[in-house]
């Protein structure tokens, strides 16, 4: 395992400074370009994916309160914001430390997905304004970013869980505008699931497999999960502890 360049601390300081989000990202992208050839360096960089423009970064061990998911649209939006932060951080890591044998098509697909997740994250952050939760710290220590099968397998799971989270959360939103907005996003997450499935298991039914779509003769339904189910699934991948209060569905 190779080490990252020695200047990583300086880059990180730039990213967490006062630059605009766009400038911070540009620098970050340049940093990614410079280190792409360094190969996999998980332990060295896994803690550096805190959204550089987030409103105050959380710290490992903090408890983040999403508020009243199920009573309050702000809670639902923060729940979505947390999930989008996680997804964006995951794909940033994937592109920063590409798995062995990542070809040009795969890189372009995964880069586009990364950008979509960043856009979703930034939208929720902007929409929430002062009510946004802080930037979260991912914990990807259980993921082998050097392995194509591992990365695509986790990507498929994250996307499928994300879709199920939006499907389960739609009913909790009181505002039709927010419901429509969530609907605009969830279908793109499903598109991601499909294309990643195709990379992972080409020319099969995996794109809409029986493991993610109920194959029953009067079903054909995708997954829907309650927030507490989703939070239990993603908690191991976030250093802070994320909680939220929900009502029975």
């Amino acid at each position: 395992m190779e080490k990252l360049p020695n200047d990583q601390t300086d880059v990180r300081q730039m990213l967490t400074g006062r630059e605009s989000a766009a400038l911070g990202r540009r620098l970050f992208m340049r940093y990614i370009g410079a280190t792409a050839a360094a190969g996999v360096a998980l332990s060295a960089c896994q803690n550096e994916l805190v959204d550089p423009s987030a409103r105050g970064a959380a710290r490992a061990g903090d408890v983040i309160d999403l508020g009243d998911i199920g009573y309050d649209d702000i809670g639902v939006l923060n729940y979505a914001y947390a999930l989008e932060q996680l997804e964006a951080a995951f794909y940033m890591q994937v592109i920063m430390t590409p798995y062995a044998g990542m070809n040009g098509y795969e890189r372009s697909v995964l880069t586009e997905i990364r950008d979509h997740e960043i856009i979703h994250r930034e939208l929720f952050k902007a929409a929430l304004g002062g009510k946004a939760i802080p930037g979260l710290t991912p914990n990807f220590s259980s993921i082998n970013f050097g392995s194509r099968a591992a990365v695509l397998g986790v990507a498929r799971t994250f996307e499928a869980v994300g879709v199920s989270a939006y499907n389960g959360a739609g009913r909790l939103l009181k505002s039709a505008d927010y419901l429509t907005l969530a609907g605009k996003i969830v279908s793109v997450e499903a598109r991601h699931t499909s294309i990643i499935s195709e990379l992972l298991n080409p020319m099969t039914t995996s794109f809409a497999g029986d493991d993610i779509v109920n194959p029953g003769p009067a079903s054909g339904l995708g997954e829907a999960r309650k927030p507490e189910e989703v939070l239990a699934l993603v908690r191991p991948f976030i250093q802070e502890t994320i909680n939220g209060r929900t009502q029975p569905q």
Partner: peptide, 10 residues
């Protein structure tokens, strides 16, 4: 919504 997301997979 569960149907909608499946249409997007397709």
């Amino acid at each position: 919504l569960q149907i909608h997301s499946v249409e997007a997979l397709h």
